[in-house]
Amino acid sequence: MSSYLSNNWDTILTALRQHIWLALVPVVLGFVIALPIGYLGVRFPRLYHPLVNVCGVLYSIPSLALFVFLPVLLGTKILSPLNIVVALTIYTVALLSRTVADGLRSVDPLVVESATAMGYRRLRRLVDVQLPVALPVILAGLRVATVANISLVSVGALIGVGGLGQLFTRGFQLFYLEPIIVGIVLSVALAGIADLTIVLIQRWITPWTRFQGRTA
């Protein structure tokens, strides 16, 4: 194992770096796109169920199919990382739009009502009251999306761009365990670190949640 690591250090680092980019750029893009979509699902309640259904269908498209398809749709090269980024952004949007909508719906209607009665206008009420109160639910969804993206990136290796996934295909083709194990360990560790980071951020920006579910 140690000889594998020392001989292939550069390859592994390159794969890891690519993996991080391919997984996290879609998280950021997807989150930014999902916020307004999720809000629409709450602002116009009739849109909520169609939204949930469309998101469900999008999420059920196999990642491999999407990776293969996007070059044809977008006119990109089959080996372009852009395909992976777009595909994972689509999944992130599918996952987070629903989460944002559910988060906003989870806000106690009495809280929204009292904000309205105090004289909040719609936009400021959303930014000052509804979004902060919905944060725990939204961030929980963000954790799921981030971890799912990190593990999905490797499927891209089947079309030649997959970060750590390339270690899997190489090991598989050469019948060689080391790269596969290193790839899995790094991928899981990356997911764990990303997940933990979001948890820490959540603790920091939603201090009030520590007291909920417990009466004074």
Partner: peptide
């Protein structure tokens, strides 16, 4: 009723 306080 229940005050409708902002939990955050």
């Amino acid at each position: 009723q229940h005050a409708g306080l902002f939990p955050h």
